[in-house]
Design a protein around this nucleic acid. Structure first.
Length: 747
DNA sequence: GAGCACACTTAGAACTCTGACT
DNA sequence: AGTCAGAGTTCTAAGTGTGCTC
C-alpha cells in the first residue's frame, strides 16, 4: 500500500533509481550454455521444520488439462445469472442478517466504557444456545434432565432456523453482474463507530518522573497510558519502539512537561500499569449480570453500526469501528514501531453512500470530512492514517455479495490459468535462454513464482517499513547456490523475510538453466544488490497479463494452492476411512498448501503442555483398554465354563440363567473394548494432527487460497458434512460455493 | 516510464467465548 | 462451579496490483 509521500529512505531511493535506470536499459544476457535436464515441475512444497510430513510434503503436480469451463459468467447448473432489475428483495430478505442467526455478534470489550447505554432486546441465552447448536458440531449435548420432547423440539427449532436462514440468504450468485466497474446501485449505512473518549486517570493513580509525582496534561497522560498498558509486552523493551514512542509522546506534552521529562528510563508507569491490570482482572471477575450488560451494550453497537443496506439487502460490515488511538505495532523490525497512532475524528473521515440514501449523521458537534457517492468502489468510509500516510477503509464482511463475488472471480481466473499454464511454462523455459537479460530475469523469477508460490515482491521504501522481500525484490544476500547439496544437484537455498517478517527458508533443486542464470545474475554484485536488477513487479505483471487476461503474479499462488489441495485430497483420501481419518486427510492436504505458501504461526505458548496432557490421556486410555481386554478375556473364559456347566446340568434353569448373565457380561466387555479402541484412535489422530500443525497456520490458505468448491465437492464425494471442515462464518463466506458445487466439480 | 494514489486482498497476533473436564 | 485449552472472532498491518499524472 501507499508507501506514498513521507520521508524517503535516501539509500533505497538511490538504489531504486539505479535499478530503474537498469530496468529501462536493453542489454543482452551473457551467453550461458544450458540444457534442460529436469522436466518442469511445480509447485514445490517445503519440508516442514517440525516433523516429516510424508503424506503431505511433496505434492508434485501433474496438471490435468480438462476442457474446463473458463467462463466466469458461469455455466454450471444453477449459475445462470439473471438480475431481477434492481428490485426489491426488500424487507425481511435481509440476507444473512437475522438477529438470531448472528452469533458472531459478541464483540470485544474495547468499548466497555460505553456500556452504560440503554439495553436492547438481544438473543436470549436460550436462543444463543440454539444458534450455537446450529453450528452443528454436537447437536445434542449430554446435559441431563432434558426430556425427549425437548430434545426433539430443539432439533426442530434448529432445522427451522437453518431453513429460515437459507431462505433469507441473498443468492447473489444467481443474479447478473453489474456492468463493469459498478459495485452497487444503492448503499445506505450509519457511518463508522468511534471509540470512546479518553477518561482521565483517577486521583489515586499517578505517574512519577525521577521519583516525583507529576500530574500530566490530558493529552500526555493518554499517550503515557498507551505505553503503560503495553508494559507486559516485548515491544516496550525494544530500543526503536521506546525511542519512537518517546519522541511522539513528547510532542503531545505541554512545554513544561517537555522541559521536565527528558528520559524515558526515569518514567515510572507502575501505577498506571497496575490500574490497567486491575481493570483487566475486574473484567474477568465481573458477575454474570455485569458481563451480560456489557454484552448487550456491545450488541447494540453492532445493531446500530454493524450493518448496511446494499441494493436492498442488509449486509454485515466487516470493520465498522474506527481504529482507536494507540502505539503502532509494526511487525518484525519495523522502523516506525512505537509511534503514536493518532485518534481519528469525524473531521478526518470520508463517507461513501448513495445520494438518495439517508446520509449518516456525524457524532454531535462534529462533521465529516466529506460525503461522496462513488459506486465504483466498495468502501463505506475511509480515513488517512498518520503512520504511513495510507488510507484505511471500512468495508463489508467476507460473507457479503461484494466480497463473495470478487472471491469467486479470483478462483475462476485461477482456473483459467490451469488451462494455459503449460504454455506459459513452456514459454518461460524458452525465455531462460533469451538474449535479453531482462527477459531471462523475468523467466527465472516466474519460475520461482510458479514453482515456489512466492509473492510478487513489490519495491518498498527503505525506512518506511521492515526490510522484507518477495520474488522480484530478492537480493543477492537472500540466496545461496549449491552445485550439490544433500544428494541433489543445482540447489538454491533461500533465506529471507517475507510478508509480516515471516522467514522463508527453503532448499530447492532447480533445473540447470535456472541455476546457471542465477550464477550469471550474481556476477559482480554485492550482498545488498538486487538479484533481479532489470525486473519489477509491474514489468512482470504486464508480461503476465499479455499472456492471459487477468493474470498477475498472485494468481499463481491461488492456482498452485488450489491445484495442490485437489491433488492431495485425491491422493490421501480413502473412501472407506472413518470420519476422523478422512478429516485428518483433509487437514494434511490443507497443510501441504500451507507449507507451500509458507503460512507459519508462532507455536502456541501452551503447546508442549497441551501435547503432554493429550499424551497422558492417551496413556491412560491405553491402560484402560488393556484392562478391559483382560476383563473381556476373563469374562469369555467364565462364559465358556458356564456353557459347559449348563451342558453338564442338562440345562437346569439355574445354569441357564447363569450362562445368559455371563453372556451379557461378555457383550458389555466387548463394547467397552471397542469404545476404548475408538476413543484411543481418535485421540491418536488428534495428537498427530496437532503435532504436524505446531508451526503451521491452516486458516490463511483455507480462507484465501483454496477454491471452496474443491472442498465442498470432496465433502459431497466422501459423505463428510461441510460443517466438519468449515465453521459457521466460513460457511457464510463460501455460501456461493456450497450452493453451486456438485460432486463432479474439478478445479 | 517513474512515482504516486488508491482500492483491495492477505496475514498473523490478540482477544473472547465455549464447552470439556475436574 | 471453576479452570483452561482450543476454536472462533476481531483487529489492523502488510502485502498486491492498477490506473493516473507528469
Amino acid at each position: 500500500m501507499g508507501r506514498q509521500k513521507g520521508a524517503k529512505g535516501e539509500g533505497k531511493a538511490k538504489q531504486k533509481a539505479t535499478k530503474q535506470k537498469r530496468l529501462s536499459g536493453n542489454d543482452s544476457a551473457g551467453a550461458v550454455g544450458d540444457e534442460n535436464k529436469n522436466s518442469m515441475s511445480s509447485p514445490q512444497v517445503k519440508t516442514p521444520k517440525t516433523e516429516p510430513l510424508k503424506s503431505a510434503s511433496s505434492p508434485r503436480e501433474s496438471v490435468k488439462q480438462g476442457p474446463e469451463n473458463d467462463d466466469f459468467a458461469a455455466k454450471k447448473k444453477g449459475l445462470k445469472r439473471k438480475r431481477i432489475k434492481d428490485e426489491p428483495t426488500e424487507g425481511p430478505s435481509h440476507s444473512t442478517a437475522t438477529p438470531t442467526s448472528k452469533k458472531k455478534n459478541k464483540r470485544n470489550g474495547q468499548e466497555e466504557e460505553t456500556a452504560g447505554e440503554p439495553q436492547r432486546k438481544k438473543p436470549t441465552k436460550r436462543e444463543g444456545k440454539v444458534a450455537k447448536k446450529e453450528e452443528g458440531e454436537h447437536p445434542v449435548s449430554k446435559k441431563p434432565k432434558k426430556t425427549k420432547e425437548e430434545i426433539t423440539e430443539a432439533r426442530l427449532l434448529k432445522i427451522k432456523l437453518k431453513e429460515e436462514e437459507e431462505r433469507s440468504r441473498w443468492r447473489w450468485w444467481e443474479e447478473e453482474k453489474y456492468e463493469d466497474g459498478v459495485k452497487w446501485k444503492f448503499l445506505e449505512h450509519n457511518g463508522p463507530f468511534f471509540p470512546p473518549k479518553y477518561e482521565p486517570l483517577p486521583d489515586n493513580v499517578n505517574f512519577y518522573y525521577a521519583g516525583k509525582k507529576v500530574k500530566l496534561s490530558l493529552a500526555a497522560e493518554e499517550v503515557g497510558l498507551f505505553f503503560a498498558q503495553m508494559l507486559d509486552h516485548d515491544y516496550t523493551t525494544k530500543k526503536v519502539f521506546r525511542e519512537n514512542f518517546f519522541t511522539d509522546w513528547r510532542k503531545e506534552m505541554s512545554d513544561e512537561e517537555r522541559m521536565l521529562i527528558k528520559d524515558l528510563d526515569k518514567c515510572d508507569f507502575k501505577e498506571l500499569h497496575a490500574m490497567h491490570t486491575a481493570k483487566v482482572e475486574a473484567r474477568k471477575l465481573m458477575t454474570k449480570e455485569g458481563k451480560l450488560a456489557v454484552k448487550e451494550a456491545n450488541q447494540k453497537i453492532v445493531d446500530d453500526f454493524g450493518y448496511c443496506l446494499l441494493d436492498h439487502h442488509r449486509e454485515r460490515i466487516g470493520n465498522f469501528k474506527i481504529e482507536p488511538p494507540g502505539l503502532f505495532r509494526g511487525r518484525g523490525e519495523h522502523p516506525k514501531q512505537g509511534m503514536l497512532k493518532k485518534r481519528i475524528q469525524p473531521e478526518h473521515v470520508i463517507i461513501n453512500c448513495s445520494k438518495e440514501s439517508r446520509i449518516p449523521v456525524a457524532p454531535a458537534g462534529h462533521h465529516w470530512k466529506m460525503v461522496r457517492h462513488d459506486n465504483t468502489v466498495t468502501w463505506l468510509a475511509s480515513w488517512t492514517e498518520n503512520i504511513q500516510g495510507s488510507i484505511k477503509y471500512i468495508m463489508l464482511n467476507a460473507n457479503s455479495k461484494l466480497k463473495g463475488e470478487k472471491d469467486w472471480e479470483k478462483y475462476e481466473i485461477a482456473r483459467k490459468l490451469k488451462s494455459c499454464v503449460d504454455n506459459i511454462r513452456y514459454q518461460y523455459t524458452q525465455d531462460l535462454k533469451s538474449k535479453q537479460m531482462k527477459t531471462r530475469q523475468r523467466a527465472v523469477a516466474l519460475y520461482f513464482i510458479d514453482k515456489l508460490a512466492l509473492r510478487a515482491g513489490n519495491e518498498k521504501e527503505e525506512g518506511e517499513s521492515a526490510d522484507t522481500v518477495g520474488c522480484c525484490s530478492l537480493r543477492v544476500e537472500h540466496i545461496t547456490l549449491h552445485e550439490k547439496l544433500d544428494g541433489n544437484e543445482c540447489v538454491v537455498e533461500f533465506d529471507f523475510l517475507g510478508k509480516d517478517s515471516i522467514r522463508y527458508y527453503n532448499k530447492v533443486p532447480v533445473i540447470s538453466k535456472v541455476f546457471k542464470n542465477l550464477r550469471l545474475f550474481l556476477e559482480n554484485k554485492s550482498p545488498g544488490d538486487d538479484l533481479f536488477d532489470r525486473l519489477s513487479t509491474t514489468l512482470m505483471n504486464k508480461h503476465l497479463s499479455s499472456l492471459m487476461p487477468g493474470l498477475s503474479a498472485k494468481v499463481f499462488r491461488t492456482y498452485n494452492a488450489s491445484i495442490t489441495l485437489q491433488q492431495q485430497l485425491k491422493e490421501l483420501t480413502n473412501k472407506s476411512d472413518n470420519m476422523p481419518a478422512k478429516l485428518l486427510s483433509y487437514n494434511r492436504a490443507n497443510r501441504a498448501v500451507a507449507i507451500l505458501c509458507n503460512h507459519q504461526r508462532a507455536p502456541p505458548k501452551t503447546f508442549d503442555q497441551s501435547m503432554a496432557n493429550l499424551q497422558a490421556k492417551i496413556d491412560a486410555r491405553k491402560e484402560q483398554l488393556s484392562l478391559a481386554k483382560t476383563e473381556l478375556k476373563q469374562a469369555k473364559k467364565e462364559a465358556k465354563t458356564e456353557v459347559k456347566t449348563e451342558a453338564k446340568n442338562k440345562g437346569s434353569p439355574d445354569s441357564k440363567l447363569q450362562t445368559s448373565v455371563s453372556q451379557r457380561l461378555v457383550e458389555r466387555k466387548k463394547a467397552a473394548v471397542q469404545r476404548y479402541e475408538e476413543q484411543l484412535l481418535k485421540m491418536e489422530v488428534q495428537a498427530t494432527d496437532r503435532e504436524e500443525n505446531k508451526q503451521i497456520a491452516l486458516g490463511t490458505s483455507k480462507l484465501n487460497y483454496l477454491d471452496p468448491r474443491i472442498s465442498v465437492a470432496w465433502c459431497n464425494n466422501n459423505v463428510v458434512p461441510v460443517d466438519k471442515i468449515y465453521n459457521k462464518s466460513q460457511r457464510d463466506k463460501f455460501a456461493w460455493a456450497i450452493d453451486m458445487t456438485e460432486a463432479d466439480f474439478e478445479f
